[in-house]
C-alpha cells in the first residue's frame, strides 16, 4: 500500500490569543495514512486531532517537521482534499445544488457539466427532491448530506471529516455512517475521520489512531479486522472497542489532571 499522507516529526505550536501563552498542540508526530484507507482519529478533547486534520487540509501551518501528500509537502488548502465540517459550513445564501456546485464553479467548469455533476452528487447522498431547498429549510442530517456531496463533487482523492456527525441525533448519525461507508467502498478514496466516539471509530475505520492528551502524539494505532457491514451488537465488536476505550480513558484522565493543575 502506498502512503497517501505522511507526517514526519510533525510539530505544531501556536499562541493562545486570550492568554498570550504558547501552546504545544502537536509534538513530533510520526504517522502515515495509506491510500484508500478509512482512518479514524480519536483522542481526548483539546488533544490536537482537529489541528492535525486542519494541517492536512492546509488550513493550519506546519511549525516543524514535514507533512506530505503523495510525497509533496502540503503548502495550503486545495481541491484535492475535500473537507466536511461539524458545523456543516453550508453557504446559507445558496440552495442545495448551488452549494454542491461551489467547487465546480471554482474549477471553471461549464454550466452543463456543473449541473450534471452536482445533481449526480445530490442523488448519490439521497438529496433527491431537495435540490432547490435552502440550508435553513433542512434538518441537520440533510445539511450534512449537502456538506458531503459538496466535498465529493470535486472528486478529491482525500476526504477530511471533522466530527461530521457529532451534532446529529443517534438515528440520523447511524444512517449517515452507513451511507458514508457505502460511498467510501465504491470509490478508491482515502478518508481521515476525526471523532470522539469510540463506537463510531470502530464501526467506520479500517484503522484507529488514538492520540495522547496535549501535547498530542499518536499513542497507538489499532487495526480493525472486521468486515463491513459491522454489527455493533456482536461480541467481536465489543472486544475491539475495549482496548480503544482503555487507551482513550487513560488520556482523558490525564487531560483532566493537567487541566486541574493549570487551574
Amino acid at each position: 500500500m502506498s502512503h497517501m499522507i505522511e507526517a514526519r516529526q510533525l510539530t505544531k505550536r501556536y499562541v493562545n490569543e486570550r492568554t498570550g501563552r504558547e501552546v504545544l498542540a502537536l509534538d513530533h508526530v510520526d504517522f502515515t495514512i495509506a491510500a484508500g484507507e478509512f482512518l479514524c482519529l480519536v483522542g481526548p478533547s483539546g488533544c490536537g486531532k482537529s489541528t492535525f486534520l486542519q494541517m492536512v487540509a492546509g488550513l493550519e501551518q506546519v511549525t516543524e517537521g514535514t507533512l506530505t501528500i503523495n510525497g509533496k509537502p502540503i503548502a495550503g488548502p486545495g481541491a484535492d482534499r475535500g473537507m466536511v465540517f461539524q458545523s456543516y459550513a453550508l453557504f446559507p445564501w445558496r440552495n442545495v445544488i448551488e452549494n454542491i456546485r461551489f467547487g465546480l464553479e471554482i474549477k471553471g467548469l461549464s454550466k452543463a457539466e456543473m449541473n450534471e455533476i452536482a445533481h449526480a452528487a445530490a442523488h448519490q447522498v439521497g438529496l433527491h427532491g431537495f435540490e432547490h431547498a435552502y440550508p435553513k429549510e433542512l434538518s441537520g442530517g440533510m445539511k450534512q448530506r449537502v456538506g458531503i456531496a459538496r466535498a465529493l463533487a470535486n472528486d478529491p482523492p482525500v476526504l477530511l471529516m471533522d466530527e461530521p456527525f457529532a451534532a446529529l441525533d443517534a438515528q440520523t448519525r447511524e444512517m449517515l455512517q452507513e451511507e458514508l461507508l457505502s460511498l467510501w467502498q465504491g470509490a478508491n478514496r482515502t478518508v481521515l475521520f476525526v471523532t470522539h466516539s469510540v463506537q463510531e471509530a470502530v464501526y467506520l475505520g479500517s484503522r484507529i489512531a488514538i492520540m495522547t492528551a496535549r501535547p498530542g502524539r499518536i499513542k497507538t494505532v489499532i487495526d480493525v479486522g472486521l468486515q463491513h457491514p459491522r454489527d455493533i451488537t456482536a461480541a467481536a465488536f465489543g472486544e475491539l472497542m475495549k482496548p480503544v476505550y482503555a487507551a482513550l480513558k487513560e488520556e482523558v484522565l490525564k487531560a483532566a489532571v493537567s487541566a486541574r493543575a493549570l487551574a
Partner: peptide
C-alpha cells in the same frame, strides 16, 4: 468555517 470550506474547495 465558511471561509475554510471555500478554501478546501479550491
Amino acid at each position: 468555517d465558511l471561509v475554510n470550506a471555500a478554501l478546501t474547495l479550491g
